[in-house]
Amino acid sequence: MIKALFYFLLVGFMLMLGACTTAPEKPAGFVVGEEQDKGEQILPDDRTSKTVLALLDSAQASAKAGQLHNAEAQLERALRIEPRNAVLWYYMAKLRLHQNRLAEAAGLAAKSNSLAGKDRKLRADNWRIIAHARNQQGDLAGAQQAQEQVDQLKQ
């Protein structure tokens, strides 16, 4: 009985160790600042490499600590490794949006969209960023169009 408990704990311990030494199994999103939308996060898809997930972890930690310049550098590193990963471009867009660099945020969101394929949720969020940017920049018609895209994708 004690032996069984011992082995049980040992296995548990080993599993814990394993979990500590490998990249996180479940990828986290990328939250920057106090986001308005507390809704479901957009996560990197299954094809995202462990390398990029590790960099995203660092970027998230940097962003949390308010070191946006570091987060930016880490996201760019991730993008050099997976330039066609639409979610990474979206995270960059979120970062820029938080910094109120709207034109850049819109550009990055559009880039993300150009690679997003059939990911409706991601595309909707990118269009939301574009709509917000256009709205803030006074391009109301453009914002309206972008918002229509959001609505259409959400159906």
Partner: peptide, 29 residues
């Protein structure tokens, strides 16, 4: 279709390794 200014510099740091300036990617469709 994304206009991206060509960049030769990523970052500038001080002599003692402190961050000074980044030249981030800019893209515009």
């Amino acid at each position: 279709g994304f206009r991206t200014p060509l960049r030769a510099i990523r970052e500038v740091m001080t002599a003692d390794g402190k961050p000074l300036q980044r030249y981030p990617i800019h893209i515009e469709q």
